[in-house]
């Protein structure tokens, strides 16, 4: 069985020694203690495990370690810069876009991925980008608003 010896997460290279069949989700949570990324369904239906792989949102519960070799993983723990929240994290707080917040990391990562691709997303873009993420508490309307607000903040910041 192929072993995977390192992984790049949030800009840092970690020396590991894991079975290449293990999921990225499990290695993040159980080996690197990066527990902000959550398990929800194991079949890519809920999005709680969303991380960015080379900037693109993926379901880490379905990504085998052998497929993430030498690629850059970004998790919720990697969004803050110098103790400052990412504008989308701020937008989620401002919109109160959570209840139990178990989906929040995945929502924010999916949102960050979406806004990288579509900095000024239409409503349809948001639906298309977020439809793989579930919030059982039903805060979708607020998450929607947070993404719009985050988009504005990001564009403002880019000026």
């Amino acid at each position: 069985m192929a072993r995977v010896k390192h992984v790049i997460v949030n800009g840092k290279e970690f020396a590991i020694d894991v079975d290449g069949e293990r999921t990225l989700l499990s290695v993040l949570r159980d080996d690197l203690d990066l527990t902000g990324t959550k398990y929800g369904c194991g079949e890519g239906q809920c999005g709680a495990c969303t991380v960015l792989l080379d900037g693109v949102p993926i379901h880490s519960c379905r990504a085998r370690m052998s497929t993430v070799l030498r690629r850059k993983v970004t998790t919720i723990e990697g969004l803050e810069t110098d103790g400052r929240l990412h504008p989308l994290q701020e937008a989620f707080l401002k919109a109160g876009a959570m209840q139990c917040a178990y989906c929040t990391s995945g929502m924010i990562m999916a949102g960050v991925g979406l806004l990288q691709k579509k900095p000024n997303p239409s409503d349809e873009d948001i639906l298309a980008g977020m439809k793989g993420n579930l919030c059982r508490c039903g805060t979708y309307q607020r998450i929607f608003a947070a993404i719009k607000d985050g988009a504005k903040a990001l564009q403002g910041g880019a000026k």
């Binding site: 902000g36 959550k38 998790t75 919720i76 969004l79 929240l85 707080l93 959570m98 178990y102």
Partner: peptide
């Protein structure tokens, strides 16, 4: 809230 949007809060499974 900050703990929740940064993924720092530890649920039982964390």
């Amino acid at each position: 809230g900050r703990e929740l949007v940064t993924g720092k809060h530890r649920y039982a499974s964390d």
